[in-house]
């Protein structure tokens, strides 16, 4: 019987071309405006700063300047040659929205485990009890997952929520749409408590320090004229603070792509599709690839 090895490459430098050629959100621009940032990207030392002309720059390894972009309030950097820009977030062009980085948090886990947690509804009543879910309302109704233009989308995701957002005052059956435009980033859209015809957008943009350590940036674009930035941040910080200890207790930290590694149920359809998608893209960093010859 084949088995899944658990030895994990902690500081291994990334050689996976798929991941090297992505744009990675390495910092909130406000963070580097406060001073130079010294960190890691895919196992290599990374330095980010604002030059005297006001431009954001970054250098990897000992002192190799690398390509950067500034989009949606973040500094995006790459160790390789991306085929285009950062994925589009059309909500950032709707000027009545409040757009901000709710928080940046370090988590001892691989990027794909964090993305999978972001796509998961079934944990709401247990990990976010009283906020995003509440026992006994635990059922995950059937939902659809589709691949569109190289991105994953999950539709018709309904879940009972006692307090879905900072601006909610009562329980609702919240509707979610999930979008995975990047192996290490995901978005969710949920019915806005203040404008039923539109959706709030929340993104998780992951900065992979190593294969098993990340910084997660939580991007928020909401229709909320009521809550102060501080309240919106506090709500999201509270939610992530509940996820962090769960993520750090997942073993192995790398996401196993072999379908025989873990036991999915119907509620995990988005995770099943996400794992297959990573396999098909050929991602090997942050994951345990499926064994040779395994159908994915």
């Amino acid at each position: 019987m084949t088995v899944m090895a658990t030895a994990e490459a902690e500081t291994q430098v990334c050689t996976d071309p798929v991941i090297r050629n992505q744009w990675h959100a390495v910092a909130d621009l406000d963070e580097i405006r406060r001073g130079e940032l010294r960190t890691l990207l895919l196992g290599e030392p990374l330095r980010c700063w604002i030059d005297s002309g006001g431009a954001a720059r970054a250098a990897a390894g000992p002192d190799r300047e690398i390509e950067v972009r500034t989009d949606y309030g973040y500094l995006w950097a790459t160790l390789g040659k991306p085929s285009g820009g950062v994925f589009d977030v059309p909500e950032t062009r709707e000027h009545d929205r409040r757009t901000l980085n709710a928080l940046t948090v370090g988590i001892e886990v691989s990027a794909p485990r964090a993305v999978e947690n972001f796509l998961d509804m079934a944990h709401f009543p247990y990990v976010h009890a009283g906020v995003l879910g509440e026992e006994p309302h635990t059922e995950v109704a059937e939902y659809r997952v589709e691949e569109r233009d190289g991105e994953l989308w999950a539709f018709d995701c309904l879940f009972y929520q006692p307090r879905a957002a900072a601006a909610s005052s009562q329980a609702v059956l919240a509707e979610y749409v999930y979008r995975v435009p990047h192996p290490y980033s995901a978005m969710l859209y949920k019915s806005s408590p203040t404008d039923a015809s539109r959706m709030d957008a929340i993104g998780i943009f992951i900065h992979p320090l190593t294969a098993t350590r990340i910084r997660a940036h939580l991007f928020i674009s909401v229709l909320d004229d009521v809550s102060a930035d501080r309240e919106i941040r506090r709500f999201q910080q509270g939610v992530i603070a509940q996820d962090k200890p769960i993520l750090e207790n997942q073993h192995p930290k790398l996401l196993p792509l072999d379908p025989r590694a873990e036991t999915p149920i119907r509620a995990d359809r988005s995770a099943i599709v996400y794992r297959r998608w990573l396999s098909r893209l050929g991602v090997t960093y942050g994951v345990i690839p499926a064994a040779e010859g395994v159908r994915t």
Partner: peptide
């Protein structure tokens, strides 16, 4: 870590 049985690897 033992792999899960084949019938549990799918829904």
């Amino acid at each position: 870590i033992e792999e899960v049985p084949i019938h549990l690897s799918e829904v």
